[in-house]
């Protein structure tokens, strides 16, 4: 098992023939992801990277049975691309695009509430289930198969965590990059819940950053759910000054509750093993797994 994507996923790429879309589609295909085609309005009927190009997502769903979409279209058109994917019945929509205006995302989020589609991102590295499907821009070789799930707001920090997990002798079920924007489709808590309910995932790494309440919400849910699996947490931005934006639009310290220190305290209070240094994520996870008897 795994969550969101696996070897049976039928993946399409929106923004397939653009430079970003082409490059990462090629990487995904080489990884072994089941990419069944792509969408570029006006280029339907052509072939690209030996896969069919469609004018609409609906056609890709009808003809190729697509059920996962990854979006690389520019920010001005990304909200429209998400809505089109959902309307066409795509189950998992992964939006990589960075820089979508907040005003465009507010109605998208409201629209998706009434639908079955799960949106991951935007402004995220994507999702990977090692040896099965890489639906994102992460370096695939870093992620080895295993039983640790990862949820993270950040791209390179996800790779860092995965690398440490692998070097500590473990591997990954699914790594989910949820994105760093103020409005994202899937929250930390929702992503953690998926992994908590995945029978193959035995431990979870939760990587957050300053800003918002997602990590605190996830921590409270983990406790209310009975701390069924060990969770190792890290919050980036312990040294960030209040009121300044740190790269990600959502990464800014607001009130007292969303500083790194406050989030770490809330996570500890709810039974999460919090590390101060990002260099300790892998080793701490290994020790936690040894205690549960999964590793010996």
């Amino acid at each position: 098992m795994s969550v969101l994507v696996n070897k049976n996923s039928r993946v399409i790429v929106q923004g397939f023939t653009g430079s970003e879309g082409s490059f990462h589609a090629q990487q995904m295909i080489e990884y072994g992801t089941n990419v069944v085609g792509g969408v570029t309005p006006g280029k339907g009927g052509q072939m690209h990277l030996d896969k069919p190009v469609f004018n609409t997502v609906a056609e890709a769903v009808a003809q190729e049975g697509a059920n996962v979409s990854i979006i690389f279209v520019p920010p001005a058109f990304a909200a429209d691309a998400i809505l089109e994917a959902s309307e066409a019945g795509i189950g998992v929509i992964i939006c990589i695009t960075e820089g979508i205006p907040v005003k465009d995302m507010i109605p998208v989020k409201a629209y998706l509430k009434a639908r079955k589609s799960i949106l991951i991102g935007p402004n995220c590295p994507g999702v990977i289930t090692p040896d099965e499907a890489k639906v994102g821009i992460m370096p695939g070789f870093v992620f080895k198969k295993g039983n640790i799930g990862i949820v993270s707001k950040s791209g390179t920090l996800t790779y860092e965590a995965a690398d440490q997990v692998v070097k500590a002798g473990m591997g990954i079920t699914t790594a989910i990059g949820i994105g760093g924007d103020p409005i994202i489709g899937t929250t930390t808590k929702e992503a953690v819940e998926m992994l908590m309910n995945d029978p193959e995932t035995e431990g979870i790494i939760l990587i957050g950053e300053i800003g918002g309440t997602y990590e605190a919400d996830a921590a409270k849910w983990i406790r209310s759910d009975g701390n069924r699996k060990p969770v190792v947490g890290f919050i980036a931005g312990q040294t960030a000054p209040p009121g300044r934006r740190m790269g990600h639009a959502g990464a800014i310290i607001g009130g007292a509750d969303d500083t790194a220190a406050a989030k770490m305290r809330i996570m500890r209070e709810n039974g999460i093993i919090v590390v101060d240094s990002p260099a300790d994520i892998g080793e701490t996870m290994r020790k936690a797994m040894e205690r549960t008897g999964v590793l010996s």
């Binding site: 950040s154 390179t156 950053e209 312990q238 990002p278």
Partner: peptide, 23 residues
């Protein structure tokens, strides 16, 4: 490279006895 890793790197600097001069 990357905003999250950049913030984490600042944290590593602090934990190693320094103070980050920038993001």
């Amino acid at each position: 490279n990357g905003a999250g890793l950049a913030m984490a790197t600042m944290d590593v600097i602090k934990l190693s006895g320094g103070e980050p001069a920038n993001f």
